[in-house]
Computed example of a mutant assay.
Amino acid sequence: METKGGGMDVYGDVVAVSRSDAHTFRKGNVETIRLLAGLGVEGDAHLGVTVKHRSRVAVDPTQPNLRQVHLIHAELHQELAAAGFAVAPGELGENVTTRGIDLLGLPTGTLLHLGAEAVVEVTGLRNPCQQINTFRAGLLKEVVGRDEAGNPVRKAGIMGVVRAGGEIRPGDPIRVEVPAPPHRALERV
């Protein structure tokens, strides 16, 4: 990946797209999703300028929605399968399942060009919650680990906001545009 001066290359592709109009843990796979600039995924419960995640709404419903689009790398599904957890695209609540991109290694502000028109700006890491254990007992320990210093390592994908709208479908290319240095590591949002 080119990291100097905000370079852009093709790095991967879309494996699946998912949405849910209700606040459900899982999102159903669909043939295509439409991203709406500044809002999120059309027809998804998390669509909006202000935060829609229920626990965050309870704290402050006026805070900006930095979680308009949730992306998870298919490589996580493979890692979970190797640990005995069968997880399919959309089952962890993601809107876009990717392949071939180190999502967790991207800096804040990276632009993901999905398909022909859509652009998502990466805002941070998903902070997995206890609902993951309700879905599959013991899964939370697989998606939140600890590094050598005891700091949490979140592996349940990244969040972003829609900068340019457009349709996305499985098989679409993903191009990564890294911002100019200095880079800021992803933090939970």
Rank of each mutant, 00 (worst) to 15 (best):
G7R: 11
H70E: 04
A45K: 04
D60N: 14
E94P: 00
Q68D: 14
M1N: 02
Q63P: 03
L106I: 01
I72C: 09
R26H: 00
T24N: 06
A81D: 07
G12V: 08
V15E: 11
V51H: 07
L92F: 02
A37Y: 04
G48S: 11
V57M: 13
I101D: 05
K4R: 12
A45T: 07
P107M: 08
G48I: 02
E75L: 03
P107S: 06
D21L: 00
R67K: 15
V30Y: 12
L106K: 06
K52T: 10
P61A: 12
E75H: 05
E91S: 07
S20H: 08
A22S: 11
V51E: 12
D44K: 08
A82N: 09
F25Q: 02
D60W: 12
V49H: 13
L106P: 11
V51S: 05
L76Y: 07
V59R: 11
V96Q: 06
A86K: 04
Q78I: 01
G38M: 10
L76S: 11
L92W: 02
F85G: 05
G109P: 07
G6R: 06
L80T: 04
Q78P: 01
L112Y: 13
R26T: 05
R34Q: 15
T108P: 08
G40P: 05
E42G: 08
K27M: 00
R19Q: 11
N95H: 06
L71R: 01
L92Y: 01
V49D: 09
